[in-house]
Design a protein around this nucleic acid. Structure first.
Lengths: 254, 254
DNA sequence: AATAATGAACTGGTAGGACCAAATGCCAGG
DNA sequence: CCTGGCATTTGGTCCTACCAGTTCATTATT
């Protein structure tokens, strides 16, 4: 077949050639206009050199992410505006090896910062003792990982998630979670540098203190700085890529 | 087979018995703990009285929505925390006929309000003439629909999406879009009352004026009022449900 | 007896075929 | 020109078969 070595889920983010990713890049490659009708499932299966079943699984995913609209007995249509796509469609792409554009990183950071700010503000007012314990437990775990010279991507994720949980509003955690997944690979790379881990941990501790003392003003200021630092880092680190990209179109694979 | 009358996509939100929905309600019904391993695909197919293919399509969706983790040759596992689920998982439920809990409505309104506020603020500063034209065009369309005694769910959606677009940041539109889809059915019901349509339109016009004159303070105040009104409406209308629910069971997590 | 090697059973991943019903489009008949 | 009806296309569902890792209990080895 096409790729005999690996068998992975059609939607598996870890797969570098998942059918969803290939379907997505086909749409991109064919430069299909919004609202366009895609080839039929049977044709897509041929085009992608796979079975109809796999195509259907991929389509089901893209449908749930509002990238595509499947109309019974009629056809498959691209959604009208690109903003119809769920943010999770971007998340999926980012984790299937599709190159994330610098703009997307910057824009996502802007939204994430807005959410995180509001979340921290609420957390200061609503956090329970248990929330605080949970946050500090994660901080302790992080300390251990750092001491063992390991990355702290997981713990970083958990920390921010715990902050979100302290708002007593699950939706914050759910939405922010998408952003964490979106930046997962980048954060993993970032935290491969021990210095970054330590710096991050310092800031997390300060933020925790502020939340412990319910000092919303200070907590917001700290998290803003935390976010800004990441934003600058990625913005800067990706300038080179930007140049490369503008020269030769965006690379398909990582 | 099981349901011979209707043929709808596995992920089709309009279907009231989609496999995703049934799988979701099975998980709920079986009261599976986080991290639990689900029955195998073949067993699930039997349980849900359907084919393995359909189950796989549903699983692909739930996987992309981070409800479930499919591990190759090992099994299907529920994600550890409920907050791992993408918000779009809720959106999916809401559009597959699963009853939306009042808590979820309230919480989603809180997050949506935070996003919408920030978005309007940015829109005031960044909106272009074209953005303004687009918004006013939608306003005009709405006027027509109202004159024809039709619902304005579509136009309401478009209006808020246009506001988000004026931020020059697609991610706002993408994320907010999920919230609009989440409340789609409720808004449809809401706008079946012509009075609500008119009231909404009045507020939309006022907001547009504020954005036109780049008066961020005023625009934020107006959109906040707009949101609050909706929040109160749904909170009030759903108090009965709240009673019902509190008898049956307490709100989920925390 | 503890441990390591082995192999059978199970599980997800993929392919391909078959049938249904609704939508679509073409063509003949009015 | 319009209309009714037929053949095609298309998505929705089901089934069977096979592959290749995973798992785990049994067996062989130390």
């Amino acid at each position: 077949m096409k790729n005999p070595m690996k068998r992975t889920s059609v939607a598996d983010p870890a797969s570098d050639t998942s059918t969803v990713a290939r379907l997505l890049s086909y749409i991109d490659f064919a430069n299909l206009k919004p609202g366009t009708r895609l080839p039929s499932e049977r044709e897509l299966a041929e085009l992608l050199r796979t079975s109809r079943g796999s195509v259907r699984e991929a389509l089901a995913v893209l449908d749930s992410l509002r990238v595509v609209e499947v109309r019974s007995n009629s056809g498959i249509y691209l959604r009208v505006r690109a903003t119809d796509y769920s943010f999770d469609a971007l998340v999926l792409q980012a984790n299937t090896g599709v190159a994330v554009k610098p703009v997307e990183i910057r824009q996502s950071m802007e939204v994430r910062t807005a959410l995180e700010l509001k979340a921290v503000d609420l957390a200061c007012r609503r956090r329970t003792k248990e929330d605080l314990h949970q946050i500090r437990r994660i901080l302790a775990e992080t300390e251990v990982e750092i001491a063992n010279d390991k990355g702290i991507e997981e713990q970083d994720h958990a920390f921010h998630l715990a902050l979100a949980a302290a708002t007593q509003n699950d939706i914050y955690a759910r939405v922010l979670n998408s952003f964490y997944w979106f930046s997962r690979l980048r954060r993993r790379a970032y935290f491969s540098n021990p210095l970054h881990c330590r710096q991050s941990q310092r800031e997390h501790i300060a933020i925790t203190e502020a939340i412990a003392s319910r000092n919303s003003k200070r907590a917001c200021a700290l998290i803003l700085k935390h976010m800004k630092r990441a934003e600058i880092y990625w913005g800067g680190a990706l300038n080179q890529d930007r140049v490369k990209l503008s020269n030769a179109r965006k690379p398909e694979q990582k």
